[in-house]
Design a protein around this nucleic acid. Structure first.
Length: 577
RNA sequence: GUCCCGGUAGCUCAGCCGGAUAGAGCACAGGUUUCCUAAACCUGGGGUCAGGGGUUCGAAUCCCUUCCGGGACGCCA
C-alpha cells in the first residue's frame, strides 16, 4: 500500500467528478497533480498541488479552486481535515485511526512490505562489473559491483523481472597476453627459473596457481610445442580459473550474477557477423573516412576508408568502426552483437553500470539499441560510478600499478566485511566521488552510518529478546495508544517506505534507500533516548501489558522496514552487536 | 575543440516528478546515564544553493550562458 499513490488517485477522482459536474472545464491534464508528504509535519500528512497546477488551464483563481476541492476532500474517508495553505496547497490531515492501519499492513506484509508492481513485470537486463578476466577484481570494481547488485534488487522488489549479468571480455588480444603470462608460470612450475616477468605480460602472483594447474593437467607436454598449439589450451584453462577467481571475489561481496556472457561466444556462433549483416541490411553501415580524433591526435593515426556504423544518425558524436584494418571485428562490433542478443532475449530495458571513465560510451550504447530495435523501443540506462578514493586514518592509500601493488576487492572485503563495503558504497550518489576510510567505516559509533543503522536493528532485537525472556507484552495490541510525537514521526516515516522505493527505482538510485534507512534509524534512536527521560515511553512497561504488546508490535514493524531496506542493499541486518 | 559528471554550511554530503521557513553528519559550544545497549540522544550558532539571464503562481531543482574542478574523446580492451 502506497498511501500517497492512493491519495493522488483520490484527488484526481475528485477533480474528474468536478469536471463532470461542470465545475471544471473538461479534458484537463491531471498528470502534474501530485499527492506528497509535506516537508513540515505541521502541514499535515498529505499535500496536493492540484489547485496551483490547474488554476491557469481552468481559468480559475487558485485559492477559490483550492477551497472548493478541499471541501470535497474533507468529506472523504480517513480525511480529518483539508485546509488550504500558502499559495494554494491543500493539506490533508488524516484521521487518527488511519495510522494504525499502516502499522497493521506492515506487520501483515512483513518481509514483503514495500514491494510493488510498479515495473509490471518489465524485463530488465542489468549488466555490471564486466571486468576483464585477466586477474582478481580490484577495489575500483567494488562500487559498480555493489551498485549494480543493489539496483537490480531494487528493481526486482518494485515489480521488474531483472536478470543480473556479467559480460566476459574473452575475445580480445589481452586474453592471449594472459595465456602467455600463465605459460611462463607453467614453465616456472616445472622448475624453470623464469626470473622477472617481462614487461607487457601480467606479473601478478595469482597466476602461479594457474601454472601449477597447467602442470598437473599437461605435465611437461606443452613445453616443446609451438605457441599456436599450446596457446588455445592454456587460454581456456587460464580463463576458466580467472572466472572462478572473479566469481569468488563477487561471492565475498554476496554478489551472484545469473548470467556470465562470453564475448567470444558471440564470435564463435556467428552472431557478430549476423549483426553486422543485419545493420547493413537496414542501411546503417557505410564505407567512409573518419575525421582524426579531436584533442591529441595519436601518432599512429591513419586516415583510411573503413566500415562504419552510422551512429550519428542515432545521436552519437561520430560514426563507429566495425572492422579493423586486418579485417577482424572491433570491440564495438561485439558490443552491437551483444546488445542485439539482449534485445532478442526480450529485454525492454538494458542497464549498463560502468566506471566514470566510460562516460563516452553512453551515446554509442543508446545509438546501438536505437538502430537495432527502433528509437524508444528498448530503454538504455547507463549509470556511471565515480572513483573511490581509499584512505586510512585520513591518509590516502597509495597504489602503484607498476609494482602490481593494487588493492584488491578481496583485500577490502577481508578487512572490513561485506556489509560495510556494501553500505558505504551505497551511502553516496553514484555520480559523486566517494572517500572510503578503512578506519572510519569500522568505527563503532554514530559517525559510522553502517554501524548506526545496524545498531538500530540490533537494539530492536535486543528489546524483543528481553521482552520474551520476561514474558512481557501479553496484552492486546492497540496502535491507537501510540500518541507520542516521536512515535508518530516513525509511523509516518514507515508509511513513506513504499513510495521511497518506487521513486528510487524510477530514478535508478539505490542510494536513496541507504539514506532513508539512516533517517529511520535516527528517528528510532531518538525515541529510544526519549524513554530515558520519560519512562512511560519505554517499550517494556511491566505494569501495562496492552501498551507493552502494542510497542513490541510497533518495534516489529520498524524492524521489518529496516531489514527490508537493508536486504535491498545486500547488507545483513544483525540481531546483536 | 566536442561531449559527460560535479560545484549546496568551515569539512563530507542529502535534497524526490519544480512546492511552503534549504537539511543531515563531522567540526565547534553546551547539556542528558540509579532506567530496555550512552556503541545513543537533546540544544545552539553557522548558507549570495559557483556567477548571470530565462521559463513558471512558485527554481537548489528545468532551459541558456560564463567560470571552476574531474573525466572521456584511437582500428586499445
Amino acid at each position: 500500500m502506497n498511501l500517497f499513490a492512493h491519495f493522488q488517485t483520490l484527488v484526481r477522482d475528485e477533480l474528474t467528478a468536478m469536471a463532470a459536474e461542470g465545475l471544471l472545464p473538461p479534458g484537463l491534464d491531471l498528470a502534474r497533480v501530485t499527492a506528497e508528504p509535506p516537508r513540515e509535519a505541521a502541514h499535515g500528512d498529505v499535500a496536493t498541488n492540484a489547485a496551483m497546477v490547474l488554476a491557469k488551464p481552468a481559468g480559475q483563481n487558485p485559492r477559490a479552486l483550492a477551497e472548493a476541492l478541499a471541501a470535497r476532500l474533507a468529506r472523504r474517508p480517513h480525511v480529518a481535515q483539508a485546509e488550504v495553505a500558502g499559495p494554494g496547497f491543500i493539506n490533508l490531515r488524516l484521521r487518527a485511526e488511519f495510522w494504525p492501519r499502516v502499522l497493521a499492513a506492515i506487520l501483515e506484509q512483513g518481509e514483503a512490505y514495500g514491494r510493488s508492481t510498479l515495473g509490471q513485470g518489465r524485463k530488465v537486463n542489468c549488466e555490471y562489473v564486466s571486468a576483464n578476466p585477466t586477474g582478481p577484481l580490484h577495489v575500483g570494481h567494488c562500487r559498480g559491483a555493489v551498485f549494480g547488485d543493489a539496483l537490480a534488487e531494487l528493481l526486482s522488489v518494485t515489480g521488474h523481472a531483472v536478470v543480473k549479468e556479467y559480460y566476459i571480455n574473452d575475445a580480445g588480444a589481452q586474453v592471449d597476453v594472459l595465456a602467455r603470462s600463465a605459460f611462463l608460470r607453467y614453465r616456472e612450475a616445472l622448475g624453470e627459473a623464469v626470473g622477472e616477468i617481462p614487461a607487457g605480460l601480467y606479473p601478478g602472483s595469482y597466476l602461479i596457481p594457474v601454472g601449477e594447474a597447467l602442470k598437473d593437467k599437461f605435465g611437461d607436454s606443452l613445453l616443446n610445442r609451438p605457441e599456436a598449439e599450446w596457446l588455445p589450451l592454456v587460454r581456456d584453462v587460464t580463463m576458466a580459473m580467472m572466472m572462478e577467481l572473479i566469481r569468488a571475489d563477487l561471492a565475498a561481496l554476496n554478489i551472484r550474477q545469473e548470467v556470465f556472457f562470453s564475448e567470444k561466444s558471440l564470435h564463435d556462433t556467428g552472431q557478430v557477423a549476423e549483426t553486422v549483416a543485419a545493420l547493413r541490411h537496414k542501411g546503417h553501415i557505410y564505407e567512409g573516412r573518419l575525421p582524426p580524433p579531436k584533442g591529441e591526435v595519436p601518432e599512429d593515426w591513419e586516415d583510411r576508408e573503413q566500415t562504419l556504423f552510422r551512429a550519428t544518425a542515432f545521436g552519437d558524436d561520430i560514426d563507429r568502426p566495425l572492422l579493423k584494418s586486418d579485417g577482424s571485428y572491433t570491440y564495438f562490433a561485439s558490443d552491437v552483437a551483444y546488445a542485439r542478443n539482449k534485445i532478442e532475449r526480450g529485454f525492454n530495458e538494458l542497464i549498463y553500470v560502468l566506471g566514470a571513465d566510460h562516460g563516452g560510451y553512453v551515446k554509442r550504447l543508446e545509438a546501438i539499441a536505437a538502430a537495432l530495435a527502433g528509437k524508444g523501443t528498448v530503454d538504455v540506462v547507463v549509470r556511471l560510478c565515480q572513483l573511490v578514493k581509499l584512505f586510512r586514518n585520513g591518509e590516502p592509500v597509495r597504489m602503484s600499478k607498476r609494482a602490481g601493488e593494487f588493492v584488491t576487492l578481496r583485500d577490502v572485503v577481508d578487512e572490513v566485511g561485506p556489509d560495510v563495503v556494501r553500505f558505504m558504497m551505497l551511502f553516496r550518489k553514484n555520480e559523486a566521488p566517494l572517500d572510503f576510510d578503512f578506519a572510519r567505516v569500522t568505527e563503532q559509533s554514530k559517525d559510522n552510518p553502517v554501524f548506526y543503522v545496524q545498531y538500530a536493528h540490533a537494539r530492536i532485537c535486543s528489546v524483543l529478546r528481553n521482552a520474551e525472556a520476561e514474558g512481557a507484552g501479553q496484552g492486546e495490541v492497540n496502535f491507537a495508544l501510540l500518541t507520542d510525537e516521536a512515535e508518530g514521526a516513525l509511523i509516518r516515516r514507515m508509511a513513506l517506505y513504499p513510495r521511497l522505493l518506487e521513486a528510487a527505482a524510477l530514478a535508478h538510485e539505490p542510494h536513496r534507500v541507504a539514506f532513508y534507512l539512516h533517517e529511520l534509524a535516527s528517528e528510532f534512536h531518538a525515541l529510544w533516548n526519549k524513554g530515558k527521560e520519560l519512562p512511560q515511553l519505554r517499550f517494556i512497561l511491566r505494569e501495562n501489558g496492552n501498551m507493552t504488546a502494542t510497542r513490541l508490535a510497533f518495534l516489529r514493524a520498524i524492524r521489518y522496514c529496516l531489514a527490508n531496506g537493508l536486504r535491498i542493499l545486500g547488507v545483513r541486518p544483525v540481531d546483536e552487536m
